[in-house]
């Protein structure tokens, strides 16, 4: 019970963080039809910017400023990079974002070095929020949850209750028609790209110190975010939300389960005498593979994802 509740809390915290990344990615995808390979790079930039800002002005300032800087950078990338590449088709756009991911990584190497930086959780967030049986739940995780849920509510209200949200929703499926009605769709694209990357930056700010801020963080989280978007269904926000929580929970639960192949065989009454590496494999060891297994299964049995609308 204790294991279950704590894993659930951790899973949801991680899942919400994943959603902060995947929501931007999936919005950008459904609008422009291009998968932004550099999306996780903006997450990494968010973490590094927050580290840099917090050394001068503290964490509070970093939390506000870093996502804005990342979002502005994203908007500039769209306006002066992606929009130019767009003319040459999707392959050019894809290659552009692919190259951008490498570029960001190299820049991070140059500026902050190849090893991790000392981006720490601020002291006032050290400590325990509550203790469940014998395991403590840190204040900072509670704070992460709070920020994520706040962002979720804000995003929902923006998309469903405002005029700009209505235009974004319409432009998701029929950008040409929206433009013919007199709305500046290229500007909307730029805003969505900027907004999506700002969310990735925010995820970096609160995730970078909870985990670790190093040049490999973009690649590590990037692949998981793609899994989320594929499992949820390309272009579906609701799907991305469900898939984020699902994968967040799968990862945290599986890390804590020491059930092995030998145990599984024993369940079926088979005693594995042979103590080979395969027989000793536990769920914990398989944890990093599980999201990808899920993705492959989804692609085989439900190619459009849990809630995706299009068959591709």
């Amino acid at each position: 019970m204790e294991f279950f509740l704590i894993s659930l809390l951790n899973g949801v915290t991680y899942g919400l963080l994943l959603f902060m990344l995947s929501s931007g990615l999936t919005l950008i995808f459904s609008m422009m039809g291009v998968l932004n390979f550099a999306h996780a790079s903006f997450y990494m930039l968010g973490a590094y910017f927050a580290y840099q800002i917090s050394t001068y002005l503290g964490f509070g300032a970093a939390l506000l400023v870093a996502p804005l800087v990342v979002g502005a950078l994203g908007a500039v990338v769209e306006r002066y990079g992606l929009r130019k590449a767009h003319r040459f088709g999707h392959v050019a756009e894809l290659l552009f974002t692919f190259g951008l991911a490498f570029l960001v990584e190299e820049i991070v190497h140059l500026v902050w070095g190849k090893s991790s930086v000392d981006y720490k959780i601020p002291e006032y967030f050290d400590g325990t929020l509550f203790t469940l049986f014998s395991t403590s739940f840190p204040i900072y995780k509670g704070f992460m949850m709070l920020v994520s849920v706040g962002m979720l509510v804000a995003l929902y209200l923006l998309l469903t209750r405002t005029r700009i949200g209505l235009i974004i929703q319409a432009a998701l499926s029929k950008p040409d028609m929206v433009q013919a009605l007199g709305h500046d769709v290229p500007k909307i694209f730029m805003l969505v790209f900027g907004g999506g990357t700002a969310l990735a930056g925010l995820a970096g700010v609160i995730g970078g110190n909870a985990f670790i801020t190093e040049p490999g963080m973009a690649a590590a989280v990037g692949s998981i975010v793609f899994v989320v978007v594929v499992v949820g269904g390309m272009g579906s926000l609701a799907g991305a939300f469900v898939a984020s929580l699902l994968i967040g929970c799968i990862q945290t639960f599986s890390v804590g389960i020491t059930f092995s192949v030998t145990d599984l065989a024993a369940l079926f009454g088979v005693r594995l005498e042979d103590s080979s590496a395969v027989a000793r494999l536990t769920v914990t060891q398989l944890a990093p593979v599980l999201p990808y297994l899920l993705m492959v299964a989804i692609l085989i049995f439900r190619p459009r994802g849990l809630m995706g609308a299009r068959e591709s």
Binding site: Q169, A170, K174, M177, A180, G182, V185
Partner: peptide
Amino acid sequence: KPHDIARLGVGYVPENRDIFPD
């Protein structure tokens, strides 16, 4: 650009109607 032309006062109803289904 199309949105500019629309703002000058040209309306366009395309053949496939293009309503926003959702």
